[in-house]
């Protein structure tokens, strides 16, 4: 997936669970929703293309990719829950900027949960997607899921 860091580039490695601070935000990540990228996505999810629009879950996938560049999601992490709101249709070929922030951290019973806030904006700075993702991972391996 074609993504690039923009703004103040954070060259450090993705932050581990212990380093994550509630409320902290990470540098935005730019994602080009090229025809070939969307075509690969549609093939992978067995979806037919729709009026030259980007499947909403492809936008979320970009935002999650952005999150994985800032947050260490150790091997074995999985999704626990997902809330998504699709606010504006996005055309294939568009570019979006994805913003990531930490909403909550929970550690109990040998598991670690991170609640991540995601937002995607188009080039006109209009919000196109807002999401909250909860990722859970075993404490002993770290925090990783998708």
């Amino acid at each position: 997936m074609l993504v690039e860091m923009r703004g103040k580039v954070d060259s450090r490695a993705p932050k581990k669970y212990e380093e994550l601070e509630i409320g902290s935000e990470f540098p935005s990540v730019r994602c080009e929703l090229t025809p070939s990228l969307i075509s690969r996505f549609e093939e992978a999810v067995e979806a037919s293309s729709y009026s030259g629009l980007v499947p909403p879950l492809a936008i979320l996938a970009c935002a999650l990719k952005a999150a994985s560049q800032s947050i260490d999601m150790p091997p074995g992490s999985v999704h626990a829950s997902q809330e998504i709101e699709f606010l504006k249709a996005v055309s294939v070929g568009s570019t979006i900027d994805c913003h990531v922030r930490i909403i909550k951290k929970i550690s109990r019973s040998g598991l670690r949960m991170v609640v991540i806030g995601l937002e995607a904006f188009d080039r006109g700075r209009e919000l196109v997607l807002s999401a909250t993702t909860t990722v859970v991972s075993p404490a002993e391996v770290g925090v990783s899921t998708k």
Binding site: A44, A47, V78, S81, E83, L87
Partner: peptide
């Protein structure tokens, strides 16, 4: 997210573009 893409496909078939610009999904795995 692959499984949710299947859910999104169902919603797209029914609600078409309205799903893209007025849809909300809240799920637990």
């Amino acid at each position: 997210m692959l499984i949710l893409a299947y859910v999104s496909e169902m919603m797209t078939q029914v609600f078409k573009e309205n799903w893209f610009s007025g849809g909300k999904l809240s799920v637990r795995f």
